[in-house]
Design a protein around this nucleic acid. Structure first.
Lengths: 245, 245
DNA sequence: CGGATTTTGCTCATTTTTGTTCATTTTTAG
DNA sequence: CTAAAAATGAACAAAAATGAGCAAAATCCG
């Protein structure tokens, strides 16, 4: 039996939401404890299942934090600096919009305790906001599985019915020639609406995004304040960059 | 017996809302005092139950509302039966709505692999749908922290722009005199819109909900099919009840 | 075919869980 | 109020589950 096939069979056995004993799976598949255990550990590593003490297994309950956490690990310190600075710009009474980027995600803990209403279309963001009991509104829409966020015409039409004091946006890259760019046209549409309906807007872009150009242009480089952690000398002429330390 | 399963069984035994002696639970489960005690202390730590002096236990006095994982533990087997039956009614190509109840939550694993679009206003539901890679749309709105769901005027206005083949709803209780009732008026509004915009509607109500009457009436008892796990003889005249086995 | 790599099942040390025993506290009955 | 009975909490030993190491078997590749 090929391991990958066996692991699929295990997932099939677990497809009901119940807790199942490793022993019964063992009998079902006719393999040894060790083999089954290795499979289960692999599946747990992939966040597909949860291993319980006492010999039980069940389907993983929630996995939405996975994607964003890998992104956050890239340059976490820089992003955290930017996030902290961005959060310090938020005042009591503000209504803010956050797009589903890893840097805005890191802002959330710094918002705890503030009297603020946060709108977002990011599922991970909503989960985090809820767990910190921050007043929030979900902008719904079709779910894009790769980024765990709401996109599409419904999201856009909802976005266009809200006005915010401040919005905080990420992007794929920024450069002198091409301005701020993003890789996804649907996300761009959301960002543009946020910029349109927000009194004040900020881009949160760590220095590793500099020089990167992707498919869709979101804004000119000098249009909005850009919070970043290092300002290359070639950008010294731009007064809208904010250095976060 | 796997500890997690045993703890779910304890919650099930306690689901009647009465005070129950540890001794009777001990006999029911056939475990020693120590083991039971350790389970009970764990459940108390999770705020799911209250331990009383003199060997008594009961469900935690709900300061707010029970969260979804606690709700799921109550009568999990019955709910799982109902969920499985409900999911079997879903066909490829369906567009369905699920409200944020624990029984609809249990439907989700059974939907995996089907060609279906799921709309929901439940955050936990969306997380689970995403992790099983089921095509889904989030109905946004203000977040109600106690139930992790979207409610309010925005949610209602979005709801009113969608039509579904089928909708699956929970409720707080049902009785002959008062029909199907719910404890929250905002949730009722969502349910009413779902019923209005769905070609076919189903209520998922396990037998422990029978005889419970709460604040707001959602529908008459005979209006929609009700999936349940036990049909009391007093309801034998109703043809819209579907027994799940 | 032969060598290298992966997979598998076994063994054993470690950790977790469980049931028993016993001292201490709380409740009940007289 | 006192004493017996029950419940509780802690300690301990047995049983089960877990994790790591290792050698045999299976698979892959040239």
């Amino acid at each position: 039996m090929i391991p990958a096939v066996r692991q699929e069979k295990i997932m099939e056995i677990l497809s009901s939401n119940e807790i199942i004993s490793t022993e019964s799976i063992m009998k079902d598949l006719g393999v040894s404890v060790s083999t089954l255990r290795r499979d289960l550990m692999k599946l747990e590593g992939e966040k597909k299942i949860t291993l319980l003490h006492g010999g039980g297994v069940r389907l993983a309950q929630r996995t939405t934090e996975l994607n964003i956490s890998t992104k956050m690990d890239l340059n976490r310190d820089a992003k955290d600096l930017i996030a902290k600075k961005a959060a310090s710009l938020v005042e009591d009474g503000d209504v803010i919009f956050m797009d589903p980027s890893s840097t805005t995600y890191l802002m959330i803990p710094y918002l705890a305790g503030k009297q603020v209403t946060v709108l977002t279309n990011g599922i991970s963001h909503i989960n985090q906001l809820i767990s910190l009991e921050i007043n929030c509104i979900m902008i719904g829409g079709s779910i894009k599985l790769t980024t765990n966020s709401c996109v599409g015409p419904l999201t856009e039409s909802i976005m266009d019915t809200f006005y915010f004091n401040k919005c905080f946006l990420g992007a794929s890259g920024f450069s002198i020639q091409s301005g701020i760019t993003n890789h996804d046209i649907n996300e761009k549409a959301i960002k543009v609406l946020a910029l349109k309906n927000s009194t004040q807007s900020y881009f949160l872009l760590d220095h590793t995004k500099y020089g990167i150009v992707t498919m869709v242009k979101v804004a000119n480089l000098e249009e909005y304040p850009i919070l970043t952690d290092k300002i290359p000398s070639s950008l010294s002429g731009y007064s809208n960059f904010v250095l976060c330390t």
